[in-house]
């Protein structure tokens, strides 16, 4: 069973391109449809947990499913499985990356690629924006994130922490005033 968990997540890690969310359909097929390890409701719960905890969604869901199946060792095998393919592939890529970059045409291509990457990052911001409630609190928080980082006022890590603490404070105040917290669907 432990070996099966490892191999299944190895496969999932190997065939996921472009970030954690593209892993979701693959996990659904391998862990739910093929092996009936968990059911769909449980999987939706896992995604919700993965989204509310720090770290890559792939690691979060592998750890959780592994734990459900075989406790600590299950979670270890699942996580190792999902990490190893990218670790090995990137090691190989890293060994050749810098030589490869010194080629003049590759350097030209990367001049364009850097702009493409900026658009992808902007798109990542847009994706998160689509999922948050649109109210004055959200807009103020976006502005806080923008200004603090734009003018390099405090380290990014601290900006994230400030965001979380203000969020908790806002929830407590709303609750004390007896108001319904309508900002909670994230």
């Amino acid at each position: 069973m432990l070996i099966e968990i490892f191999l299944t997540f190895l496969k999932i890690g190997l065939f996921t391109f472009g970030g954690g969310y593209s892993m979701i359909p693959l996990i659904q097929r391998e862990a739910i449809e093929k092996r009936h390890w968990i059911d769909n409701d449980e999987f939706l719960d896992i995604i919700a947990i993965a989204e509310s905890t720090p770290g890559p969604i792939a690691i979060n869901s592998a750890t959780y499913i592994g734990y459900r199946l075989r406790g600590f060792w299950g979670s270890l095998m699942a996580t190792l499985g999902v990490v190893i393919p990218s670790f090995v592939v990137i090691l190989l890529v890293s060994m050749f990356f810098l030589q490869f970059k010194s080629n003049v045409y590759i350097a030209y291509a990367f001049q364009g690629i850097r702009i493409g990457v900026a658009i992808l990052i902007f798109n990542a911001a847009l994706k998160i924006y689509k999922k948050v409630n649109k109210n004055w609190f959200t807009y103020v928080m976006i502005l806080i994130g923008l200004v603090l980082v734009l003018f390099d006022i405090v380290p990014t890590l601290l900006v994230i922490l400030i965001g979380g603490l203000v969020g908790i404070l806002h929830t407590i105040i709303l609750h004390r005033n007896g108001g319904e917290d309508n900002g909670g669907t994230v």
Binding site: Y129, V132, G145, V149, L150, G164, G167
Partner: peptide
């Protein structure tokens, strides 16, 4: 409180990411 924390963190990250994209 977990929900409250995320309610604050997610929009802040939107702002941070937009800034980094602009910087790039």
């Amino acid at each position: 409180y977990v929900k409250g924390f995320l309610k604050g963190v997610k929009p802040v990250i939107v702002g941070i990411l937009a800034t980094v994209a602009l910087a790039f």
